[in-house]
Design a protein around this nucleic acid. Sequence first.
RNA 1: GCCGGCGUGGCGGAAUGGUAGACGCGGCGGACUCAAAAUCCGCUAUUCGCGAGGAUGUAGGGGUUCAAGUCCCCUCGCCGGCACCA
Length: 814
Amino acid sequence: MAKYPFTEIEKKWQRRWDEGKSYRVLEDPKFPKEKRRYVLDMFPYPSGAGLHAGHVENYTITDIYSRYLRMNGFNVLHPMGFDAFGLPAENYAIKTGTHPAVTTQANVDKFREQIKSMGFLYDWDRELSTTDVEYYKWTQWIFLQLYKAGLAYESDKPINWCPSCKTGLANEEVVDGECERCHTKVTRKKLRQWVLKITAYADRLLADIDKVDWPEPIKQMQRNWIGRSEGATVRFAVDGTGDLIEVFTTRPDTLFGATYMVLAPEHALVPKITSAAHRAAVDGYVEAAARKSDLERTDLAKDKSGVFTGAYALNPVNGKRIPIWISDYVLASYGTGAIMAVPAHDGRDWDFAKKFGLPIIQVVAPEGSVEAKLGSCPDEPPACTEADGVAINSGQFTGMPTGETKKAMTKWLEAQGLGKLAVNYKLRDWLFSRQRYWGEPMPLVHCEKCGVVPLPESELPLLLPEVKSYEPSGTGESPLANIPEWVNTKCPTCGGPARRETNTMPQWAGSCWYYLRYIDPRNPGSFVDRSKMDYWMPVDLYVGGAEHAVLHLLYARFWHKVLFDLGLVNSDEPFTRLVNQGQILGTDGQRMSKSRGNTVNPDDYIAECGADALRVFIMFMGPIEAEKPWSTAGLTGVVRFLERCWALGEKPVVEGAGDAALVKLLHKTVKKVSADSGTMNYNTAISQMMVYSAELARLESLPRSLYEPLVLMVAPYAPHLAEELWEKLGHKDGIAAASWPTYEEALCVDDEKEIVVQVNGKIRERFQTASGTPEAELEAKARAFPKVQEWIAGKEIAKVIVVKDKLVNIVVKG
RNA sequence: GCCGGCGUGGCGGAAUGGUAGACGCGGCGGACUCAAAAUCCGCUAUUCGCGAGGAUGUAGGGGUUCAAGUCCCCUCGCCGGCACCA
């Protein structure tokens, strides 16, 4: 079979698409709302390494989908851009002195070229980079809106600090106690920070997950990350001092079993309530805890530690004096930073009580147990039980099932003014500032008189200044702090001396709203034009990796909701449907990484067998969501398929209907490929086209009516080849603008069906019969076979199941 | 530990509760050729049998059903996420 000149063809069509701007998309009102689609890719960080296999997979999925939709009469917005702020360019700058903007530009150019060489049709007139001044001007503008809405605040609580990246990290960027980016152990550092109040949106971020069509695992991850838990706050008085310690508990029903309290070492009351006798021990413990990293305080500290403060609290339900301890198993950052300990019904409290010999009182017993019947249990229980049951040893609540006790106790606490219903979230506010250079400067100044003052919007963009050294100062300030002429400014409010904020924004900032800017990328007066936004938003399909489940995808939802509340966007969720493409693994089944040496360079394959083959091959590997190990074995089959299509193009094309059986196969193929392309089941669509092309290949000459639809169906998958074949067929207009073929349902039905004859579910015979043969006739035919007779001979027929066009199952007894 | 997802030939993978293994790779046999490559055709789950044919088979065990890869319960394994969040 003829090798086809893919290099020549691919270059030719890429040039034509570029010159003809066939990628261009406009807000054409002729398309009704239901004929518009916004198909979005997670834009890449333009690294020096170039496009990797994952990018190619991601963008092939959406390119096929977009092309398919266009051929079906949709107006499709399918843009591309670059998430180009971030550390690699900055670290390279530190090493070589090259300005990050220079590195970034070079990488972006390389990426764009590689993306074009894959034949991906993006609207390049809408290309953007988060580092463009005209882009980050609006990132700063949105930040100001957040600030004005009271959603940005300064904090000097200890933060996650990466000593290698020399910057603070958000909770979401700490994975197993390590920096998500460089895997250095994260330490704690006290630093003044800007924080975004994402927790104010916790309830809505949680509730609205139900509205979107996203993969269940991602939704679950977001739910877990937000971590809503319902319970009650309860106030305990400190014996003697009158101080109140508020705790959060999800088990108010176990209040009678609270035998001690534990405060986080950082809790504000610790210094105050500690008795003189215990002060030295407490101070020592607090100091040691402060030095520990979060990792040490969790993983390494499963073995409980703690010290007694010498103070006692009064259990509000029974007035019992209970000791107050401090321990680092209680987190300062969750709830109130203090807990009531119920060792009988909480594993952690149990471990702690056992270690330090604290009393344990059982207050819940399994339903129907002896203790439940008695309503009490005088002895310490043999083990901790967290399961629900019936309240015991609990005064007026004794005998109530756990669920009811929770409600009754909360109500009682409220009535007594001792506590109330409360909801807590695991989600923490978003640490938003970075002590690095290559990011958006924060448009704020610090004035001696006026405090923090936002820059007037008219002064945006606040440009990132040139610096001599990109090295972070290490003191926790960004390199910007070393430029007095930039830092020192005037207060926009009072005109007095002021200092600019020297922190920059994290890389996630730019990606929080890029999908909006694509809609109106060059607008100088607004972040996006309202009517254009109404034309496209929300995003219909968003495709990208699952690694952003709680990072970008949560942050972007948060910003979008803020913009929605400010009346600036038309939807409360940005991404209607999300699809995660499965990772492409190395040939060894491991994740691709440079250190493993199992990476794949798409350029090599484009050179060797062409972009079309690479596109089809990656889609043929398996379902798009599945993890797939890279194996070039299958590439051969795809190349053969494309070569066969090419060879078809060399055959004479004739007019006329063609063989009836082939016509049927054509209609079945159009039906299957249409359905599978629409649902992105590309692997089975390709398989069907292979079957059909193999049948056409047997012909000496090709009826146009059988051949053209194949070329059209191939177009989204192997666009260069299809364009060339289309042109050879005599068409002047490009195939990208042609209409998708149609099929007739009536022609998809076979004349004959094979019927399976089963006896007790086991296949004993098969026969051919006309489609739609009535049930009674099928049964009669089935029973007539000698072999079937043998199997049912001398047995009682209990039942016969007949499924039209499918099978006859004779159920016999004995 | 908790929460998800997955488990099908030698391999990648197909299968609205109704013929398990489509399609592709690889392998075997054949055609073409002086020969080879390329291409084309046929076969290719395991097992018993010369054969006709039979038995087994979708991680393992149980269940529902005339019928289960598919639905339900339990177990095991792999992958991902979370993990002292009270």
